[in-house]
Computed example of a mutant assay.
Amino acid sequence: MSLSLPRRPALARLDPALAIVNIVLLLIFFFLGAGQPARPPAELQLAQTRLLPAAVLPSPVLELHGAERWLLDDQPILPELLPAALALHDGPLHVMIDRQAPASLLLDLLRHPGLEGRDLRLVTRPNGPAP
């Protein structure tokens, strides 16, 4: 006598490709949304510099006009002499650079060995008439 047991129903197997397609689609939507450039506000105005006398600015102010053309409190200074000149001043060094200057100029200043441990502050001049 033979007993016949009912057969188990075959398990439905999900295709792993379906999960991969879902993940890829989600990543595509994420990068499409995250990659959209942000629109600047309509009233965006960039900072501008104007000539002002050094007496109006905080001291010491280092103005960068080029790789070798620096002014410390309206006096020309060589980059190599900057640490010696700053030894006379306590407090932060105010740095002013034109917005059209290359960023490498500011980065070179930040890497200057004489400025290690020194508090640096970027300053701008108001966009009005000189007092």
Score class of each variant (00 low, 15 high):
48 Q>V: 07
15 D>N: 15
81 L>C: 02
55 A>D: 14
11 L>P: 15
32 L>W: 12
9 P>I: 01
41 P>W: 00
110 L>M: 08
9 P>L: 07
89 H>F: 14
118 R>L: 02
47 A>P: 13
63 E>G: 04
110 L>C: 02
19 A>D: 12
110 L>E: 13
10 A>V: 07
37 P>D: 07
106 L>M: 10
68 E>W: 11
50 R>K: 09
36 Q>E: 08
124 T>G: 13
52 L>G: 04
65 H>I: 00
68 E>Y: 09
36 Q>R: 15
44 L>G: 05
51 L>A: 14
2 S>M: 05
118 R>T: 03
121 R>T: 01
65 H>R: 15
67 A>H: 14
57 L>H: 10
72 L>I: 02
83 P>Y: 05
63 E>C: 01
35 G>Q: 06
57 L>D: 01
6 P>L: 05
7 R>C: 02
33 G>A: 08
36 Q>I: 03
87 A>I: 01
71 L>E: 02
42 A>C: 00
51 L>H: 11
20 I>G: 10
62 L>V: 01
123 V>P: 04
91 G>I: 00
40 P>H: 02
24 V>W: 08
17 A>P: 02
4 S>T: 10
32 L>R: 09
105 L>G: 13
108 D>K: 05
50 R>N: 06
56 V>E: 15
120 L>E: 06
39 R>Q: 08
7 R>A: 10
2 S>T: 10
67 A>V: 04
55 A>E: 15
46 L>E: 12
25 L>S: 09
70 W>C: 01
46 L>I: 02
104 S>E: 13
37 P>E: 10
45 Q>V: 09
55 A>P: 04
104 S>H: 11
81 L>F: 02
33 G>Q: 12
94 H>S: 08
58 P>N: 05
107 L>P: 00
115 L>F: 06
99 R>E: 12
102 P>G: 09
8 R>F: 08
112 H>T: 03
22 N>L: 12
41 P>E: 11
93 L>K: 13
72 L>F: 12
43 E>T: 11
108 D>N: 11
53 P>K: 05
66 G>W: 12
47 A>N: 10
110 L>Q: 14
43 E>K: 08
86 L>V: 03
12 A>Q: 11
59 S>R: 14
37 P>R: 09
108 D>V: 00
60 P>Q: 06
5 L>T: 01
44 L>A: 13
23 I>A: 14
115 L>D: 06
44 L>W: 12
73 D>S: 02
90 D>V: 01
80 E>R: 15
30 F>M: 05
73 D>R: 05
92 P>T: 03
19 A>S: 12
83 P>I: 00
79 P>Y: 06
103 A>G: 07
34 A>W: 13
62 L>P: 12
60 P>G: 06
95 V>F: 05
36 Q>C: 04
111 R>S: 09
27 L>W: 12
55 A>Y: 13
53 P>N: 13
42 A>G: 01
87 A>G: 07
37 P>C: 04
39 R>K: 12
98 D>S: 10
77 I>K: 11
67 A>C: 01
25 L>R: 08
124 T>Q: 10
29 F>Q: 05
23 I>N: 10
17 A>T: 04
66 G>Q: 08
31 F>G: 03
5 L>G: 01
19 A>M: 05
90 D>C: 02
73 D>P: 06
122 L>W: 08
12 A>N: 06
92 P>E: 07
59 S>L: 04
21 V>E: 10
104 S>V: 04
12 A>H: 15
